[in-house]
């Protein structure tokens, strides 16, 4: 088991299969919130589902309505289990915060990891995220 430590942004603990990309990701136009499937044809993850996954990507991009999409993913139950970014954007963090406040469904989020999670975590690996302490545990 490998451990990466980062900054806990949104609290809570979640465990799931990793979905990793080296490309930035924008939720509006990026994912169908009714299914959790990536709909951005130009993105490397096109067609894959983020539902229940530990979603690892460098940073957010694109439309500022993204927080509402994350909130809808939380409402439909299709949100990622947790999010790991190198540097988190307010849009993503706000989505997690609002999901917690308005639907009581936490999406733990961590950024500023001490090692590059995109290199250290492989898609499909089992990962546990503790958004309160900032600890990422990678099981193979």
């Amino acid at each position: 088991m490998k451990i990466i430590r980062g900054r806990g942004v949104i609290g809570g603990v979640a465990k799931g299969e990793a979905l990793v990309t080296s490309e930035p990701f924008g939720f509006f136009g990026g994912v169908n919130p009714a299914t959790g499937i990536v709909i951005d044809k130009r993105h490397a993850l096109y067609g894959q589902s983020m539902k229940g996954k530990v979603f690892v990507y460098p940073e957010g991009r694109g439309s500022t309505v993204g927080a509402a999409i994350i909130l809808e993913l939380a409402r439909t139950g299709c949100a990622p289990a947790a999010i790991i970014n190198i540097s988190i954007e307010t849009i993503t963090a706000a989505g997690g915060l609002l999901a917690q406040k308005l639907y009581g469904r936490g999406i733990p989020m961590i950024d500023r990891p001490d090692r590059n999670p995109i290199e250290e975590i492989e898609t499909g690996a089992t990962v546990e995220v503790d958004g309160s302490s900032g600890k990422i545990s990678i099981y193979n």
């Binding site: 919130p33 439309s63 309505v65 909130l71 609002l98 308005l102």
Partner: peptide, 19 residues
């Protein structure tokens, strides 16, 4: 504001604004 259209706000956005 950017919470303006049902197409991008979805049910969660409408419910949040109402709340």
């Amino acid at each position: 504001l950017v919470l303006h259209a049902y197409k991008s706000a979805f049910d969660a956005g409408v419910e949040a604004a109402e709340k």
